[in-house]
């Protein structure tokens, strides 16, 4: 993947942040992933991924409003950076290329 070192889970997290544009903070991201992927996501796993992605510069974050339910703590909203967008693009491109280059016979199982 060249200069964009992104794991599969990280990719999903980034895509989710993009999907939730404007409303992407811990809980919504967790729930969105759980809904789409039908798998359990722990706060720990998700938060480390977000943290790492931010450090790598794929995501940026800013504090939002605080609510009583959160015990008066502010939310941290995430957004994909242009650099992150480029990384996602590249991943998609690479994947597309893969699919294009698969010879059609490789997936024709009925003759095997």
């Amino acid at each position: 993947m060249g200069k964009y070192a992104i794991g599969e889970f990280e990719e999903i997290v980034m895509l989710t942040v993009a999907v939730l544009f404007g409303d992407a903070y811990g809980i919504t991201i967790k729930q969105e992933i759980e809904r789409r992927m039908s798998r359990k996501v722990s706060v720990g796993a998700m938060r480390t991924a977000l943290n790492r992605l931010e450090k790598k510069g794929f995501l940026e974050s800013k504090f939002g409003e605080a609510t009583a339910v959160r015990g008066g703590k502010r939310k941290r909203y995430f957004q994909v950076t242009p650099f992150g967008k480029r990384a996602l693009d590249q991943i998609m491109e690479t994947r597309k290329q893969y699919w294009k280059d698969i010879p059609s016979v490789a997936f024709e199982f009925k003759f095997i």
């Binding site: 903070y25 943290n51 703590k73």
Partner: peptide, 12 residues
């Protein structure tokens, strides 16, 4: 990281 993580946990 503490503030928003703690908030998330509370909300959850």
């Amino acid at each position: 990281l503490l503030e928003d993580v703690e908030g998330d946990l509370m909300e959850l």
